[in-house]
Design a protein around this nucleic acid. Structure first.
Lengths: 335, 335
DNA sequence: TGTTAGACTGAAAGTGCTTTCATAAAATCG
DNA sequence: CGATTTTATGAAAGCACTTTCAGTCTAACA
């Protein structure tokens, strides 16, 4: 056989002196072929290390015990933590996990529409990705069970958090602590159009409560910053170097809060006396850093998503679930 | 069209009055087809809800433009960072990435031997997983290009780091800083048998240098701790509460170093004056925390792995590569 | 002993795509 | 305006199998 090529059914046929039909038969309905021929074919198969291609797939197509996760930014801590939750319950239920990182709209559509993957997977968890009607329909038409996280669609299961409320929680906490000059730092501007922007909602909730309390939130206290360390640190620097810096900063993501902490430390500002800092997410590092934050229970949301998905796979006519998981203020040392 | 059947390119061709070649073209190289025809085809595609079948596609194309990563602990920071590197170069090269989390030996063997997955993938990156001869042979026999990270095998490409040297670097640095009582904290005991244990090598390198310098490393200064926060903190606590605590601690992983930092802070020990701390890996947070550490350039190793893999896919008769990536001491504030 | 029902097996026709090759039509040029 | 590119398209040949159909043998039955 050609040195570096994978053997095909034809090679096996040649090697064992029968036709490809027979090979196919010993693979798919062994009882229909003469035991002796079968043995000969088998030994050829072993010898050549032949692995049927389409067959494996076709077989797998029925039920794969494997679920897929579509996610952007899969290396960001918050996504990783959700994935961890998913992985945990999946492995308990003896399901395999496959992660498809999505880094562009086409990519997403490619994955969703090219239901090909899907034939490899019993269900789909879709994280922080905007699914439009067309895509939802596609999933539905192909009866692909799925659950969305951080987004929702009437026709699909979903798990969301109340970002507005999260912002409110942060604001209330800061007000209770007696702050009068508070700033917001986050990635308000849509980072990429395929992703969701919960940050805006967090901002709105935050702002609303301040307004209700008669506390102004001047423009200079609202900083746009991407998730990169540089961007956040730059924004933090500006904020803290203001002639009259805020006494508290609400960062829409823990990673950003941590950047702020770093800058504050460099500027020798004491936390929380000079600046209080509150984050959002409660990623692992937040605890290491003793960061006060709004916990959205990332692991749990992953776990929940997986559970819902699994239950819908087992019993496909279950009613859709739209879950809103609770947010919780975790007070630590930075406020 | 028949009611319950999924449309094929033939249906689309019929519906839009062109040949299947043209359909294939608008799907794969849209610029090669007349804009108007393209529009007509597109609308047919939408109308029929046509989705190309991956299986057929892969068969005809002989490749999938998708590569797989087998990895344990995929949520641990160091793994995530490597994955980030992989993802970066892959997406540049227009390859899709699929991550298969491996959490048991059977899992690994299942993935590797049940080459069905493999039909889905043009190549494999295998992280921190011990591959035995049988598995290597299987990969080889199926001419599945692959590269190992943090492990090596004569028949497969590999990227390794010199863990022993890393331990030595840490030891030398601490000695230079004038320390006389140094401790080691790490997960020396094999966590699970399918994973690799680079920690032991780091320990050995560390110990060797201390010995050479005539500095003792008593048993009580060698702490076994798993990667969990509790375990590491517990170990750190023991260490720091010793009647004569070490003046410096080498943690075999940054996450553990960070746990130590936290405990030290709680005990009001000053870093680095009371205890110096040096980690290993240089994960993202290390910089946030100003942790001195041994950088193993995780992103880079991922990038490199992907590059090697890709180059071997393009040109399958390239010679095997066994790369050892350099380690580097990053001095920050904790030593 | 002549039939005949099975049991085996191969030829060949799908399967749903990609891609090469050829050709027709349109655009460019001297 | 004829010659030459260029562009747009279709026919047809794969790819790696599955499956149907029909033919060959053989063993069993009358």
């Amino acid at each position: 056989m050609p040195p570096n090529k994978k053997p095909t059914i034809y090679d096996v046929a040649k090697n064992s002196g029968v036709s490809i039909s027979t090979i196919s038969r010993v693979l798919n309905s062994p009882d229909k072929v003469n035991p002796e021929t079968r043995r000969r074919v088998m030994s050829s198969i072993d010898k050549l290390g032949f692995v049927p291609k389409a067959e494996a797939r076709a077989r797998a197509m029925q039920h794969t015990n494997r679920i897929g996760v579509l996610t952007p930014f899969f290396t960001a801590p918050s996504f990783v933590q959700r994935l961890r939750g998913v992985a945990a319950t999946l492995s308990k239920a003896n399901y395999e996990l496959v992660i498809y990182p999505v880094d562009s709209v086409e990519h997403l559509q490619g994955y969703i529409s090219s239901i090909p993957i899907m034939q490899n997977v019993d269900g789909l968890i879709i994280m922080s990705l905007a699914i439009d009607d067309k895509e939802a329909k596609r999933l539905h038409d192909n009866s692909m069970q799925s659950v969305l996280i951080e987004y929702s669609h009437t026709r699909l299961n979903s798990i969301e958090i109340d970002d507005v409320y999260g912002g409110q929680l942060a604001a209330r906490h800061l007000i209770e602590k007696g702050h009068k000059r508070m700033a917001f730092l986050g990635d308000i501007e849509p980072p990429e159009k395929y992703a969701i922007h919960p940050v805006k909602s967090r901002y709105q909730g935050f702002k609303k409560i301040l307004e209700d309390a008669g506390i102004p939130l001047p423009k200079k206290y609202v900083m746009q910053a991407s998730y990169s360390q540089e961007s956040s640190q730059q924004a933090a620097l500006e904020l803290l170097n203001l002639p009259q810096p805020p006494t508290a900063i609400f960062a829409a993501a823990d990673i950003q809060a941590i950047s702020i902490m770093k800058v504050a430390r460099q500027l020798k500002r004491h936390i929380p006396d000079d600046v209080a800092i509150i984050g959002f997410d409660d990623i692992d590092i937040a605890e290491y850093m003793d960061l006060t934050t709004i916990r959205q229970n990332l692991d749990e949301s992953g776990r929940l998503a997986a559970e819902i998905l699994l239950s819908h796979i087992v019993e496909s006519d279950r009613t859709l679930q739209h879950i809103k998981i609770p947010l919780q203020l975790i007070e630590r040392q930075t406020t």
